[in-house]
Structure formats: structure tokens, C-alpha cells
Computed example of a mutant assay.
Amino acid sequence: MVKTRIVTYIIATVWLANGLFCKVLNLVPRHQEIVARIIGDTHAGLFTRLIGLAETVMAIWVFSGWRSRLNAIAQMVIIAAMNTLEFFLAPDLLLWGRLNALFAFLFILLIYHNEFSKEPSFSR
């Protein structure tokens, strides 16, 4: 199956929404509560904004298409790591509790399928 631009844009939009809107602009304070649960209250605001900035940069990287395979691997590892921490340390703060892990896994599968289930391209 060929990688589609629309799926790539959806993936990037998820990173942008969660990074910029939820964390940097703090429109969803629950994200800072999750960070506080993991690292403590003292620097939770700063770390939440830094994580949000990193997620916003990830969205730009996804949109750019530069080194897309490395990008896909990075996304999958980051999503797995973040959701593993949240699953064990802050399940009560997650939108769908421990069921969030299922949605994270499905998102990882979408990223994998979009990047690695395609014909090799000779135009790169």
C-alpha cells in the first residue's frame, strides 16, 4: 500500500494538537497533571511546555517528510515510552484510563503502516 498524504497530515495534526494546543498553550491542564505525577510538581509546567514544544517540532518533521522512516521509528518509540509511563504512573488522569494504551497502539500501527507498508521509492 502506498503512503498517503492525508494519513501523514492526520498523524502530524495529532502531534500538533497535543503539543501546541494541549501542552504549550495549556488548553488541557490534565497534561500538566500527568507530567506532575511523573516528575513532581516543582517543574511540571516547564517540562509540559518543553514536551509540547518537542511534539510541535515532531509535527513539523512529519509534515516535512524529511527522513520519514527515521521519523516513523522515533514516533513509535516515543509513543510507546510515553504511554507506558502513563499506563503505570497516571492511569487515573488519562482520558480513557488504561484503555489509552490501546489507542496508542493503534496510532503506532497507523504510523507503521503509513511508512513501511509501501512500495520502495526510487525518487528519494
Rank of each mutant, 00 (worst) to 15 (best):
M1A: 13
V2H: 11
T4G: 11
T4N: 13
R5V: 15
I6Q: 12
V7E: 08
Y9V: 10
I10P: 04
I10H: 06
T13A: 15
T13W: 15
V14H: 05
W15R: 07
A17N: 08
A17T: 13
A17R: 05
A17P: 01
F21E: 05
C22D: 08
C22T: 03
L25W: 05
L27W: 12
V28L: 12
V28F: 08
P29A: 04
P29D: 05
R30K: 14
H31R: 02
Q32G: 02
Q32T: 06
E33M: 08
E33D: 14
I34D: 01
V35K: 01
V35D: 01
A36E: 00
I38L: 03
I38S: 01
I38M: 04
I38T: 00
I39F: 04
I39K: 01
I39V: 13
G40E: 02
G40R: 02
G40A: 00
G40S: 02
D41W: 01
T42E: 07
T42P: 00
H43D: 07
A44S: 12
A44H: 01
L46Y: 03
L46C: 01
L46M: 06
F47N: 02
T48D: 02
T48V: 00
T48Q: 01
T48M: 02
R49P: 01
I51W: 02
G52E: 01
L53T: 10
E55K: 01
E55R: 03
T56G: 06
V57E: 03
M58E: 02
A59K: 03
I60H: 04
W61C: 11
W61Q: 14
V62N: 03
F63S: 05
F63G: 04
F63A: 14
G65H: 07
G65L: 07
R67S: 09
R67F: 09
S68M: 15
S68I: 11
R69V: 07
N71G: 15
Q75N: 11
Q75F: 03
V77P: 07
V77F: 15
I78M: 13
I78D: 04
N83W: 07
T84I: 14
T84F: 15
F87G: 09
F88W: 14
A90E: 12
P91D: 10
D92L: 11
L94E: 14
L94F: 08
G97V: 08
G97H: 09
R98F: 05
L99H: 11
L102I: 14
F103I: 06
F103L: 12
L106N: 08
L109V: 09
L109D: 06
Y112C: 04
H113Y: 10
H113A: 13
N114S: 10
N114L: 04
F116E: 06
E119D: 12
E119Y: 09
P120M: 10
S121V: 12
S123N: 14
R124G: 07
